[in-house]
Design a binder for these strands. Structure first.
Lengths: 192, 192
DNA sequence: TTAAAGATTGACTAATCAGTCATTGGTGTT
DNA sequence: AACACCAATGACTGATTAGTCAATCTTTAA
């Protein structure tokens, strides 16, 4: 039973994730999700009272997956630069290795029906960056710039790089792109 | 007649832009657009054969508006750094001054139903950056980084900064944010 | 073995969707 | 005034939507 339940629920979330990234939230019907998941339409509504509940649940699930991926293997004994580089690399590799999750989060964040508060909540996940930046650069300023600005540029640049790698489809250049991207940011964000 | 026609068409596009940025493409019905524009549903379909045609027409219209805004007042006699700074400032000010257009383009670009080819076409608009970067930094590399990477970071950072300004609602800090953001990018992108 | 409890089903509904088309009404010409 | 022309209309359609629910099947426990 317990396993069965988990199977159905997981199947629904898997199908939903795939379809949402392919066709968007409004573009995907609950009927289609159920069909792809191999369950009846009623079953979907047993687990998720409304479509919106499904979207939100899926978002927290996906955010969790990416979050643990992003924090992996950061050695707190390493130098600040090494840790930043690892974080940068993790962000990009997690996105490239989990393209559906990556696209879903992007779509969710820029979605108009998601409120501003939810979007801020969404951003909280990436306070890892903010924490690390603040710890490394002292209080309030990197070079002469605000921490929030630094974090935003770091985060959005990493997303841009993931898109570049996914669109070009050339995974072999990935290491070089990651390295080059980090050099730009590190040079830009460091104090003189 | 001619003016009448233009009025109705403009009203439809204005209403569509507003609603699309508020509720998304699928979340906005043609009936609602017509109602907000003050025309009958049939009238909308006189001007735009399908909803998709309306979205595409609107996209090219909006892209055009932003494009001319972005290129304004760049003095080709100025130094490379001055021109880059002006371009950066224009990107951000155009976004802040035209929030609906800014959000619409972002939504359109990250929309799943827009094909990869259309998205590349969309990006062509911002070859202004690529052209300028290539002209200023020579052929192929900025510092040691590829031009495309530099352009993507420039573009996505500018979008991040616009979002920051729009979300915080604090227009008075804008000049400082623009300046700080530019310093990060300029330092990052410049050769040693 | 049996019965209660809970999970699953899919036909169904009311609402909403994009798009149609016969009709109307305003304008310019003669 | 009589006509032609065409933009504008909005009631209408068939398709699709999120969500419901009585009936059926599966699991558990006595």
């Amino acid at each position: 039973m317990d396993q069965q339940v988990k199977d159905k629920k997981t199947a629904i979330m898997d199908a939903a994730l795939k379809l949402f990234t392919e066709r968007g939230f409004h573009g995907t019907s609950t009927a289609q999700i159920s069909k792809d998941a191999g369950v009846a339409t009623g079953t979907l509504f047993n687990y998720f009272p409304t479509k919106e509940d499904l979207i939100n649940s899926l978002y927290f699930e996906v955010k969790g997956r990416l979050s643990s991926c992003i924090k992996e293997g950061i050695d707190s004994e390493a130098t600040f630069e090494a840790r930043m580089k690892k974080l940068w690399s993790n962000f990009i590799r997690c996105g490239v290795n989990n393209p559906e999750e990556f696209l879903f989060v992007g779509q969710f964040s820029s979605s108009p029906y998601i409120t501003k508060i939810t979007r801020e909540e969404a951003m909280k996940e990436y306070d890892v960056i903010l924490d690390m930046v603040e710890e490394g650069f002292g209080n309030g300023k990197t070079g002469n710039y605000s921490m929030e600005l630094a974090m935003l540029i770091f985060y959005h640049s990493s997303r841009a790089v993931v898109s570049l790698i996914l669109d070009s489809g050339s995974l072999q250049d990935m290491d070089e792109i990651i390295e080059d991207g980090f050099q730009i940011l590190w040079k830009g964000l460091s104090p003189e």
